[in-house]
Design a protein around this nucleic acid. Structure first.
Lengths: 216, 216
DNA sequence: GTCTATAGCGGGATAGAC
DNA sequence: GTCTATCCCGCTATAGAC
């Protein structure tokens, strides 16, 4: 296996006895590299260290496998930021908290995060079964729920005067975009530490809170 | 042709006598919708209103076609921001100018912009000819050149004290990410005007300059 | 449960007509 | 220059062995 692929695959501490988790993880790594359409089930099997027979025993189709990865990614993400949003603190403290959770999610679950970003792009309108469409709808609902968490915190901060007057929905797009764009340029490295990840997250979050202008 | 596709295709005022531009435009629209791997040459031909014979007469392969669209997109973008960066004004004025040019580029050349974003993702390491690799290198160089323009303006503003003390390279990633992420949620609409586009660009740029915190 | 073998087809690319 | 017809490879998905 390629070195970069190994680093990313090893981010997930997968229970070696759980076939399903192993497959999801291998699929995330494979889809991450070349996208849904350009990734063959044989490639996923290669990453997994088996043949595609194993995959088709657990998943009905390539689309189902992709959606399962996508759903797993979104579930963990929304759970993480929801917990923080419901915790205490000022709007700014909570906004920093959810942004930090998103940044760390992207860095420490990189393959899954990239699949989630791809999934937003894919319509998959054609050739989807009703069951697949149902899964896709639930994933989109989770994404919207996650975005709403950010909107609510910002609206609260505007109401309290801590944030400047603005339309929260218009702020959320560039704010989350700046974070999600990490999936384009960031790549996990073997020599990373919790501290280096926190530092990177903090520098981005500071920018997203303060902007670039010097205090007058 | 689908309505949304028609709106986007008509953004480009293509010279009806120029086969090459017509093909590039049709390819951009097709690739925009489903990505490189999932788009067949027959689909591009459909958008073009011809058969794939015409396309293969002008382009050696699907990869060459994609790279031509990508190159066209990046060339226009870099030319646009370079002109503005070399003009006069304070660092903040010029930063606003290049951000505005990027935002308008994404909105008014939407299909090409989405291809450019995809292209960054595609490694295309396998099955590329030396000529293709050369094109890909030149496109990547253009992208880096564009990013450097932003870095330089920010560094200048930091030096002059107009911008807060920061590492320009770390600011540029989220700043451009916020803009490029528009390709994920923005969609051209038939009822748009120059004014509505300027307003949207301005709201994003204000956020990227000021951040979200109220003045203390 | 996982493997091997293969059916079936979509789509890239080409040859040759016009 | 553009179209039609076709070759052929690669990949999804399945059948059947173990």
């Amino acid at each position: 296996m390629k070195k970069s692929r190994r680093i990313i695959a090893e981010q997930e501490k997968v229970d070696k006895r759980d076939s399903l988790s192993q497959i999801l993880n291998a699929a995330a790594v494979a889809f991450m590299e070349n996208g849904f359409a350009a990734t063959s089930i044989d490639t996923v099997a290669d990453v997994l260290g088996s043949t595609k027979g194993k995959i088709y025993y657990h998943f009905k189709s390539k689309t189902d496998l992709f959606l399962a990865v996508h759903q797993d990614s979104m579930t963990q993400y929304v759970n993480a930021i929801e917990r923080i949003a419901l915790g205490g603190g000022t709007p700014e403290e909570r906004l920093r908290g959810v942004l930090r959770a998103l940044a760390l999610q992207i860095m420490t679950r990189f393959a899954f995060s990239r699949v989630a970003v791809q999934g937003v792009e894919l319509h998959m309108s054609r050739s989807t079964t009703p069951a697949q469409r149902k899964t896709l709808r639930s994933v989109i609902e989770m994404r919207d729920k996650g975005e709403q968490i950010f909107v609510d915190i910002i609206a609260e901060g505007v109401a309290s005067g801590q944030f400047r007057r603005c339309e929260p929905r218009l702020i959320v797009k560039p704010m989350l975009g700046a974070m999600n764009w990490m999936t384009m340029w960031y790549r996990p490295r073997a020599d990373e530490t919790d501290e280096s990840r926190e530092a990177l997250a903090a520098s981005i979050i500071d920018y997203l809170i303060f902007g670039i202008r010097a205090e007058p």
